[in-house]
Design a protein around this nucleic acid. Structure first.
Lengths: 200, 200, 200, 200
DNA sequence: GATGAATGAGCATTCATTCAT
DNA sequence: CATGAATGAATGCTCATTCAT
């Protein structure tokens, strides 16, 4: 019935949100399932109706938040009138950077969990995590720019890795420079990489 | 006395090596101090004579291994007859990649622990870890190329982040391409970045 | 109504059979009510409509299976043309042994649950278990041989205990000898016991 | 050092005795490790220094108590001046029955745990339990009577099973008769069995 | 310095039982 | 009658840390 179903979903989301709150505040190692259920206001046994353990809820969380981040960047990109692949890539990169600059907690959470696996998450089937993938969107994205690029997957990989790894410290600690100072250099480097892969 | 001193050092190293073995095999979360002392063949209390806790021995391990890796790359670079900063950088990068390709366990260990903090480790005082830094060497390195580069620290940062993040998946999983296939593109990108920062 | 009644009975039997399956496979301690209802394909709450708890279903099971075993042995005995009490006793003992040799799972289940209470189950009102007894049949049996035996109940007790305890290991593990090797010695011992109680 | 060693042994025995007390009072299923350590006055972790779990301490207990029971019966037998195997067997059986009649708690404990495996425990290597066996003594016992008995092991098996299973109900519930009333019949049956196996 | 027995707080996990639907 | 989501007490077990020897 609809009511019970809604209640179930509500419990599940309550647990997810509470876990995110605690994981980002105290760290996953210092967060016990007791902490989560207590803060979420459900019984201990209820946790196990929805998740296998602490790491299960964590991975579901990562996929969920990273997917949302990427999807909304793509959505906004489609609202623009951009045709040049270079422009589209830079728009998406810039949009994600801005989102993460505004939500540093999310940045820390994603960085800690996806770490060096960020690009794999976006380009391949996330079999580990087992939830709806960003893959579809990424495939389309790659198809669009496919014509003029020699090896689109490799190019995207390098761009994502460079971006993902260099913005972390800049956004959070202004190290070695602030994110605003980093941006022109980063975009220049990305442009170089795109040129490098462009079939002339 | 020398003998006692040697014994002491032997115990410490035995603990360090055993911990490395276990951390890389079972993961730090699944390794208990009991596991370490048992495998190292020392008493439980002895552990606390040398290290504060599990995380203390882990961070000492990270610094130790990462320092060794970087130092021997620099040493080999000095044995070459390279004067051009671009050549020197590419030599060091290539040397470290080769070393990590041969020692995948070390690659995983460093990646997991330094993660996105790889560049900070190499460029700043590692106050967190509390041991002799690679900083000195890096500073010299930066000084050497200082004349012709507009912002050497930022340039190094971007190079290190791009390299550190892109080689992981290539070496371990041949994804998206093998490390040998990645190398030319990576070096081209690094060259672009250096050019970008070079004062004309 | 017939249909609903049949459905009800079907659920009950489904639970009984599933419980027997699980108790004999995993042991009662390692079987949860969740396990039973899941394997039986009914809802958790349904279990409590038919049984009080795990131990309730178990004891109902024991009585049910042990009664069936004994009843069919008596039935087959009546089909024979045996008049001598000694022959009748040996026929029943032999029949039960053969049945248990063919159904080792049942042997283990009965042994584990009746254990040293096997004879009490067969000779007295099973107040503990609370279901239709084998008692009636046994009483008749005792009456038949009553004339010539000094203390029929005690005699039966000793025969049942000797039989019940000695066949277990022989059937299941061929220890200290196989059941076929044991039989002649067992029947000789039973004959001695009967003689001992026979009024000359 | 002696002091520490003694303390260790004291802790172990304290746990064993407490566990026996609780298992025989509340049953093993209703006794938690918390109950044991609390009653024994040691910390929870201490339990796990000596025993694997509840079932481990239980089986150690069974072997320990059953061994003691049998050993002291044998000891007393050797103090007598008995040469006839028949007399020796009956003496031991009688001695054990008397001991168990005086210690009904022990009778219940042994019956519940050894159940139908009583003879196997006494005649074979108790590999399951892993402690010093009664086997040695039993072997000697069998050797002594070996000359005149056709199959000593089988004979002992039948005697033990008959005895072990028939005394339980008699001692505890005077059912079907009191132990004193049972004795003559039991010993007559044992004598018959011995005769049956005696080489003429 | 070195030991390792003892500790007990802390945690994950299970599961019988209830009850609103 | 039947359901199955929710409960939360109960429990087994781990493990960092201490300290008397």
């Amino acid at each position: 019935m609809g009511k019970a179903e809604a209640n179930k979903q509500h419990k599940r989301e309550s647990l997810l949100n509470t876990a995110f709150e605690l994981f980002t505040t105290k760290g996953i190692n210092n967060t016990s399932i007791s902490d989560i259920v207590e803060a979420a206001g459900v019984a201990k046994g209820t946790f196990y109706l929805y998740f296998k353990d602490k790491y299960d809820i964590n991975s579901k969380l990562v996929v969920h938040r990273a997917t949302m981040l990427f999807d909304s960047a793509l959505e906004r990109m489609h609202q623009q009138d951009l045709t040049d692949p270079k422009d589209r890539i830079l728009f998406v990169v810039n949009d994600i950077i801005d989102a993460l600059t505004k939500d540093k907690v999310l940045l820390m959470f994603i960085s800690k969990n996806l770490g060096l696996g960020f690009s794999r998450f976006m380009m391949e089937s996330p079999s580990v995590t087992g939830e709806e993938p960003v893959v579809e969107a990424t495939k389309e994205f790659l198809k669009d720019i496919g014509g003029s690029i020699s090896d689109p997957r490799l190019m995207m990989y390098m761009i994502i890795e460079l971006t993902g790894s260099s913005i972390y410290s800049a956004i959070l600690y202004d190290q070695p420079v602030s994110i605003e100072e980093l941006k022109p250099h980063l975009y220049a480097a990305i442009t170089s990489i795109i040129d490098q892969f462009t079939i002339k």
